[in-house]
Amino acid sequence: MKAAVLQFPGSNCDRDMAVALTRAGADVRIVWHKDHDLPAGLDLVAIPGGFSFGDYLRCGAIAARSPIARALIAHAERGGFVLGVCNGFQVLTETGILPGALMRNANLKFVCRVVDLTVATADSAFTRGYAAGATIRVPIAHHDGNYHADDATLAALRDADRIAFTYDANPNGSRGDIAGVLSANRRVLGMMPHPERAVEPAQGGTDGAPLFAGLLDALASA
């Protein structure tokens, strides 16, 4: 499985993401934001956490208009797999690949702690490594993770089983306790929690590992 991790000025989880993917068996390349093309034959693009372009204008807004973002959008439109974590989720909503937007946390605080998530659906390459309804513990670290979508969009997400993860105790004001959402073709996942920070016991937990293992399995058998 060939994966690319995008790197923007201000990305700070790019290496963690690369390590988590490599550990699960992926062949990983880091791709700079000024590049216009993704490596040929790519299966997955991962957009890491951080503060791309200093969060200027809006979180993820400038990254979503960078040269590599065009290639990212084309990859998603071709049916390629995309994983956006934290700032990566913000970039995905800013490109319009995923619906909704991520606003300032309702309590205005930067929240950095390990939280319980419910796996809302096991029906995706990203979540097939979990049992639907399972509780997992994954770190969050963000100031703008308050997921907002209008009522019609929320209903559509629910009806199509596109909510991937929900918070057990809502840390940021997200509508519907939403922590992660899938695209209509279920091949793009955006989530605020950091599964790549929970793949080795030394990180304090390994509940993120099945996401990467499941993804590798799904792509190997595809």
Partner: peptide, 9 residues
């Protein structure tokens, strides 16, 4: 429309 505002919110 393209950059300055996020018309979702």
């Amino acid at each position: 429309e393209k950059l300055l505002a996020n018309t979702v919110i």
